[in-house]
């Protein structure tokens, strides 16, 4: 039989197998790194119509989160402040700042400032702020150190795995209720007060849902 393949073709099967193995490895690694919420979401930092600075207002000035996000402990959604709230101070502080023009416009007309949403739960996910916040889950667990951010960015992955990591062992993440809005406070577990965390869970019958219908209603 005349030769139709060079001798080097003998190595072909091995080469193909190696190629596929390497390709599969690289593809898996790439997908794991680049295609998960950890990479895709974290760091998302849209430009806001007003360069509102949390590190100044919540950090330096020490405003409580609830001063602006008033409904966070009472309702499912955390509200954004109306222009009125800003004007409480900014009618006297820097009243003519060009940066605050949209706030003043909103104040006069009643049209809300078009803030760009940073955190979005998919519409098939049920989420409730008050149930977390009132049980000692601090904002920092899900939003990172907002009090140090000049512009709010997505600091946590907010994947289902992220939610479940806490729901499966909430005792590791809880704070005393008074510390919920103090984003610099350590968790009870980090303070070595696991028994307090467990007592809190026991007393309030904290039982985060792990079944699908808890979050996908």
């Amino acid at each position: 039989m005349s030769k139709i393949f060079p001798k080097s073709a003998n190595a072909l099967p091995l080469q193909i197998v190696l190629f596929i193995v390497v390709l599969a490895g690289v593809a898996t690694a790439a997908v794991t790194y680049y295609a998960t919420p950890k990479y895709l979401r974290i760091g998302y930092e849209p430009v806001q119509p007003v360069p509102f600075d949390h590190s100044l207002h919540a950090g330096q000035l020490g405003l409580d989160c609830r001063y602006c996000h008033a409904s966070v402990e009472k309702s499912a959604t955390s509200s954004l402040p109306a222009a009125q709230t800003c004007m409480n101070c900014h009618s006297v502080i820097k009243p003519a700042s060009p940066l605050l023009a949209p706030v003043r416009h909103s104040y006069e007309t009643g049209e809300p400032v078009p803030w760009v949403k940073v955190h979005v739960a998919p519409d098939y996910v049920y989420f409730n702020h008050s149930v977390h916040v009132t049980r000692g889950v601090s904002c920092v667990e899900c939003h990172g150190k907002v009090n140090e951010m000049t512009t709010v960015y997505h600091a946590k992955p907010h994947s289902m795995g992220f939610c479940l990591d806490c729901h499966r062992q909430p005792e590791k993440f809880l704070r005393a209720p008074r510390d919920v809005y103090n984003l610099d406070s350590p968790t009870l577990a980090a303070q070595g007060k696991m028994d307090e965390a467990l007592a809190q869970i026991h007393q309030w019958k904290v039982k985060p849902p792990q079944s699908c219908s808890g979050c996908h209603r």
């Binding site: 998960t36 950890k38 992955p157 994947s159 289902m160 795995g161 992220f162």
Partner: peptide
């Protein structure tokens, strides 16, 4: 998701 592949959503 039909196959048991570990993923960020813990599905």
């Amino acid at each position: 998701y039909l196959f048991p592949i570990p993923n960020a959503n813990y599905i």
